[in-house]
Design a protein around this nucleic acid. Structure first.
Lengths: 140, 140
DNA sequence: AGGTCAAATGCAATGGTGTTGCATTACGGC
DNA sequence: GCCGTAATGCAACACCATTGCATTTGACCT
């Protein structure tokens, strides 16, 4: 099942309406290889001859984040679709510093070790976010 | 040697001038337990009866970042002093989601494993940034 | 100590980013 | 197809960040 179809199922199952703006945002995020900002999405939608208010885009992205369907990539200020939907507490991204292309991965062992180190430092960690910067296969 | 004194040495050694604004920003960052934003620093300086233009603060923080004396904490949009000055390619923070207090640590094994995973994914990683969110000792 | 000059700062203006309140629209259930 | 409510669009606003340029000042030299 595609990301858009899956997301629509999630929206319906949680009682959220499936609207044109939400479909448009999902579609823009699905196609993107690199993180897209709210204003990027605004431009993408306009290029298709349609229009979405930027406030709506912010609200849709906020909802999709809360449903763990998309992530905010802090180092880029943009959003990407969530590829690993069943790993809620630990997200790792490889972001190419040149083209911005992004790959998501997860690693249980890393996650466990980080929690242990945190515990030794008197800290109860709930969420790990790693953004590794480097060069992707193509940009090298 | 204190963080401020060390930073001043670095500035001098690289040919940068040691000015009042730079001292003020360094001092504000040194005292802070949690990340401080440029506008936070502006307020801190004002409380001491002095004044710095926010543009200057941005520029000073940019310089200090480029010298690896401070870090930007993405999840908080603020800056902290760098505690581990000799670990340039790998930075890990524990950030308390309640009070914002921050602890820096590093771990060579984690860093190595991350690089290996990245390599297997066709990615040459240069910089790891992990921000773990959770609760600090006091907030629990 | 004081003059010199480039680096650094302050100011004004501007553009981008993100939020709030409210009237209007349109989706989903009947 | 109608209805009620959730969702959107609009206007306005607040905050964040950057740029260009005139003025100031720290470091160097004598």
């Amino acid at each position: 099942m595609s990301f858009v179809d899956y997301s629509i199922r999630v929206l319906r199952s949680r009682g959220y309406k499936v609207t044109r703006p939400r479909r448009e945002v999902l579609d823009a995020v699905e196609r993107a290889m690199a993180p897209v900002s709210p204003y990027d999405i605004s431009r993408i939608v306009q290029q298709r001859g349609k229009h979405l208010d930027h406030v709506t885009i912010y609200r849709v992205l906020g909802l999709l984040c809360s449903l763990n369907l998309v992530h905010k990539v802090l180092s880029r200020g943009g959003f990407v679709k969530c590829d690993l939907l069943d790993e809620p507490g630990c997200h790792r991204f490889l972001v190419c510093r040149q083209c911005g292309v992004l790959q998501e991965f997860t690693d249980e062992a890393l996650c466990y070790q980080e929690s242990q180190i945190a515990r030794r430092m008197g800290f109860h960690s709930e969420y790990h976010l790693t953004e590794s910067s480097g060069l992707c296969h193509r940009c090298r």
